[in-house]
Design a protein around this nucleic acid. Structure first.
Length: 209
DNA sequence: AACTCGGGGCA
DNA sequence: TGCCCAGAGTT
């Protein structure tokens, strides 16, 4: 079947696919993912080791003023929102969740700066809960390949969950995002060097014209 | 649906 | 120099 061929091809292409953000526990991944909104994973990984060395737990962030945290994360951009969201999230983690990162979607999405994509990243990578985090890469690649035919991120996620075995949800996210970053680019997809174009819906559509 | 946050990385 | 970056909140 086409879907299983696509999945097995991606597995062969990206055997080492994994989370691009450095983290040692759910809290570090949560903060790193908030920081990663519209920033590169390399930029985030550059500042988080020092950040978590100085502030290892949610409680350690509480004494910080917004200005102090902004200064620490300035080099990745969009730092004002991120600093505000991180401080508010740490306050909630301490006051409502006993200083721990909650492991359910509703609680995660109640945290400032945490949307569905970030919640899925934390659930799947830090807690082992099967989930598919749909960002712009996954949305684009999944719809091009034909793993989804959806106009929205949420509908793409639902279709992927229906088309992919649950035990592969987490790794499928890493396969698709890696393929999007390395081959299936937004502007100029490298179809000529892509092993998947024989089964790619978008490639067939383009070549028929 | 459109707008805002944003300095750094990289061609 | 110009474009993009593992998004989310507000209006």
């Amino acid at each position: 079947m086409t879907v299983s061929f696509i999945l097995s091809s991606l597995a062969r292409l990206y055997p080492d696919a994994q989370c691009a953000l450095l983290f040692r526990n759910p809290f570090e991944l949560l903060i790193a993912t908030i920081l990663a909104a519209q920033a590169t994973d390399k930029s985030v990984n550059k500042i988080t080791p020092e950040l978590f060395r100085k502030y290892p737990t949610p409680a350690d962030f509480l004494p910080l003023s917004p200005e102090e945290l902004e200064a620490s994360i300035r080099t990745i951009g969009l730092y004002k929102n991120k600093a505000r969201h991180i401080l508010a999230t740490c306050t909630l983690l301490v006051s409502r969740f006993g200083g721990e990162v909650p492991a359910d979607r509703a609680s995660l999405e109640s945290l400032p700066g945490v949307g569905r994509k970030t919640a899925n990243v934390v659930l799947s990578n830090a807690f082992g809960v099967p989930a598919i985090a749909v960002d712009t890469h996954v949305f684009r690649v999944a719809n091009r390949l034909g793993l989804a035919q959806a106009a929205t991120v949420l509908e793409t996620e639902r279709q992927l969950m229906g088309n992919i075995p649950e035990e592969q949800w987490t790794i499928a996210h890493h396969w698709l995002i890696t393929h999007g970053r390395q081959v299936c680019h937004a502007r100029k997809p490298a179809c000529s060097s892509c092993d998947l174009h024989p089964v790619c819906a978008d490639y067939h559509k383009k070549t028929e014209e």
